[in-house]
Computed example of a mutant assay.
Amino acid sequence: MRNHAVGWDPTPEMQGRFGYVSYAAVIDALAKAVAGRRYIAGDNFTAADIYVGSMIGFNLRFGTIEKRPEFEAYWSGLENRPARLRADAQMEKLASKRAWEPA
C-alpha cells in the first residue's frame, strides 16, 4: 500500500523480489479475505484484527485504498471497539500536551 501510495509499483520483472505481484492483486486478496467476515482469523478478535484493521482503517481514512464494501464493512466492526476508542483518546491527550517534546 505504501509503495502504491507514493506512485510506485514493481515491474513484472521485479515482482518476485517484493513478495507481491501488484497493488491490485494485494487489494483484491485483502478484499476477499475480509469479505463477509467479522474477524480475519476465525470467530474471535485477535492481534491479526488489530494489524489488518488498523491498516484498512488508516488507508480508508486517508484515501490510499479504494473504498470497497468489504473494507468498509470489516472496518465498521472494529472502529468503535472500546479499547480502540480509549487508545484514540489517550493519543489525543498526549498530542494536546505535545508529549513527544522534551520538557
Results as ranks from 00 to 15, higher is better:
1 M>N: 11
1 M>L: 13
3 N>L: 15
4 H>W: 08
5 A>V: 03
5 A>Y: 01
5 A>C: 01
6 V>R: 11
6 V>W: 05
7 G>M: 01
9 D>M: 07
9 D>Y: 05
11 T>K: 09
11 T>D: 10
11 T>N: 04
12 P>G: 01
12 P>N: 02
15 Q>Y: 03
17 R>G: 12
19 G>R: 02
19 G>Y: 02
20 Y>G: 10
23 Y>S: 13
23 Y>C: 11
25 A>F: 10
26 V>R: 02
26 V>W: 01
26 V>D: 06
28 D>W: 09
28 D>P: 03
28 D>T: 11
29 A>F: 04
32 K>E: 13
33 A>N: 06
33 A>E: 07
33 A>P: 08
38 R>K: 14
40 I>M: 00
40 I>F: 05
42 G>T: 02
44 N>T: 14
45 F>H: 04
47 A>E: 09
48 A>F: 03
49 D>M: 02
49 D>G: 01
49 D>T: 06
50 I>R: 02
50 I>F: 02
50 I>Q: 04
50 I>W: 01
51 Y>D: 05
53 G>D: 00
54 S>A: 10
55 M>F: 07
56 I>G: 01
56 I>R: 01
56 I>H: 01
57 G>P: 06
57 G>D: 13
58 F>M: 08
59 N>D: 05
60 L>A: 06
61 R>Y: 11
61 R>T: 14
62 F>K: 07
62 F>Y: 10
63 G>Y: 05
63 G>C: 07
64 T>W: 00
64 T>N: 08
65 I>Q: 00
66 E>T: 08
68 R>Q: 00
68 R>E: 00
69 P>D: 06
72 E>K: 04
72 E>G: 04
73 A>T: 13
73 A>N: 08
76 S>D: 14
78 L>Y: 01
80 N>W: 04
84 R>V: 09
85 L>P: 07
86 R>W: 06
86 R>P: 07
86 R>Q: 13
92 E>S: 14
93 K>I: 14
93 K>T: 15
95 A>L: 12
95 A>D: 12
97 K>T: 13
97 K>I: 15
97 K>Y: 15
98 R>A: 12
99 A>K: 05
99 A>D: 12
100 W>Q: 11
100 W>Y: 13
101 E>T: 12
102 P>A: 10
103 A>H: 15
103 A>K: 14
